[in-house]
């Protein structure tokens, strides 16, 4: 189901940008303004998103109304937390450009940076 990855992002984007929950049909009509796409495809992807816990749904007549479980900001915050924790001893092994540091450590670093920047002209001359 690799090819659906992009579509998942597009559909979540649509649902995040709406205040109200949407049916598959509504999302389909929205998407059809930009691309040719089958109803069943959208249905499958939204079903997957529901199964993976991104969307909740409640029955409305013969269809379902879908709504994001959390806002994009909340998901961003969650990913950030995971990324920050990965600076510690976890198997996630993300590679940070610069791991987060405490205030006094940051201060010590800034001193080192100032020293480095002061020395620079002398080194290059």
């Amino acid at each position: 189901m690799r090819g659906f990855g992009d579509l998942e992002a597009v559909i979540m984007e649509r649902l995040w940008s709406q205040d109200a929950p949407l049916t598959v049909r509504q999302v389909l009509d929205d998407l059809r303004q930009e691309r040719e796409i089958a109803y069943t495809t959208v249905q499958t992807v939204m079903d997957n998103l529901h199964r993976k816990g991104w969307l909740t749904r409640e029955p409305r007549g013969r269809a379902y109304l879908y709504r994001p479980v959390a806002s994009r900001q909340e998901y961003s915050a969650r990913l950030m937390r995971e990324a920050l924790d990965a600076g510690h001893d976890t198997d996630l092994t993300l590679m940070h450009f610069l791991a987060q540091v405490s205030e006094e450590e940051a201060a010590a670093m800034r001193r080192a940076l100032r020293r480095a920047l002061r020395q620079r002209p002398r080194d290059t001359s």
Binding site: L98, Q100, V101, E103
Partner: peptide, 19 residues
């Protein structure tokens, strides 16, 4: 780049080794 990212860094998250 290191200095910019360190001065705008987050609330205390201690990671002595990294520092």
């Amino acid at each position: 780049a290191l200095s910019r990212l360190s001065t705008t860094s987050a609330p205390a998250m201690s990671l002595a080794a990294a520092a």
